[in-house]
């Protein structure tokens, strides 16, 4: 079932289809390896990402969580010398299969980065419209979808009077939500977030976290975070990584109250990392 045939409802970012996989996973990774030149960054990870849930990926610096995230929409291969092998399924389609268009992969699996990165030469409106224009959305449709996306990112009321102003004129937290609006405007299936709050103050962080909770109704969300409280607050399941391997993936409550692996326990209790 395609979303493109439906007209956008003014209140929701996009109506969602039920997940296609019987296990309820929107994305599945099987035996994934990733390299940077000679460095083996991810060593055979397999896991699933439940549809319309928030999956957090945590672990100490260099554990491969961000690399794995970038493998999920094939941004990893943009880094010179980087390559990945294995299977990454969106529903049951391997996004690394031959004949799959990498551009389409990234349209279906959006991304929000660590540092808010609105296009500096574009206005608030144009930033959100950027991805839509690439896909040929025009005129009234465009305006509607920009508004829906800005509402979806909880930013509409704050910026509706200054849509024509430069996007980089907004505050840091607003910029990050603008980037979220830009990402959801093209109606991806999955939104990947790479430490989206690491550069934000606590109040802006709180707003983004509330937004994540609201967004999971429409999107499958994968978030990489350094901040364990944040993982505990926003996620349904949490995966702990160490030295390029998946140590444990379980409901968030279990990870933080009753971890199965001693390494996880040491990390979540702050003994290292």
């Amino acid at each position: 079932m395609s979303n493109d045939t439906l007209t956008p409802a003014p209140t929701a970012a996009a109506p969602r289809a039920a997940p296609a996989m019987p296990d309820g996973h929107s994305m599945t990774v099987r035996d994934l390896h990733a390299h940077y030149g000679d460095t083996h960054a991810i060593k055979g990870v397999s896991m699933g990402y439940a549809a319309n849930q928030v999956t957090a990926m945590i672990g100490p610096s260099g554990c491969g969580k961000s690399t794995l995230l970038r493998c999920l929409n094939r941004m990893h291969e943009e880094i010179p010398g980087a390559r990945a092998e294995g299977t990454v399924l969106l529903d049951e389609t391997d996004i690394y299969a031959r004949g799959i268009d990498v551009v389409a992969v990234r349209r279906a699996i959006g991304m929000v980065f660590q540092r808010a990165n609105p296009f500096p030469t574009m206005s608030v409106f144009d930033n959100v419209a950027a991805g839509l224009r690439l896909n040929g959305v025009k005129g009234v449709d465009l305006h509607e979808r920009v508004e829906v996306s800005l509402r979806g990112a909880g930013l509409w009321d704050e910026v509706k009077d200054r849509l024509g102003r430069p996007g980089i004129g907004l505050s840091g937290g607003q910029q990050q939500r603008l980037c979220i609006a830009r990402a959801i405007a093209v109606r991806p299936r999955v939104v990947l977030m790479d430490e989206p709050c690491s550069a934000l103050d606590p109040i802006a962080t709180l707003k983004v976290e509330e937004l994540i909770a609201a967004l999971k109704r429409d999107f499958t969300i994968v978030i990489v975070t350094h901040n364990m409280q944040q993982a505990a607050r926003v996620s349904d399941t949490t995966a702990f990584f160490y030295l390029g391997e998946l140590v444990e993936h379980a409901p968030t409550d279990a990870i933080f109250s009753n971890p199965g692996d001693p390494r996880t326990e040491e990390y979540v209790t702050g003994k290292f990392g």
Partner: peptide, 29 residues
């Protein structure tokens, strides 16, 4: 041109030329 902006364009599903047009050229004009 910061890699941030180029990646932002690619992550939106821009082709390479579309990335140049939306992120690189306006910035370096």
């Amino acid at each position: 041109v910061p890699a941030d902006h180029k990646e932002a364009a690619l992550a939106l599903g821009a082709t390479r030329w579309e990335m140049i047009r939306t992120a690189v050229l306006p910035y370096s004009r």
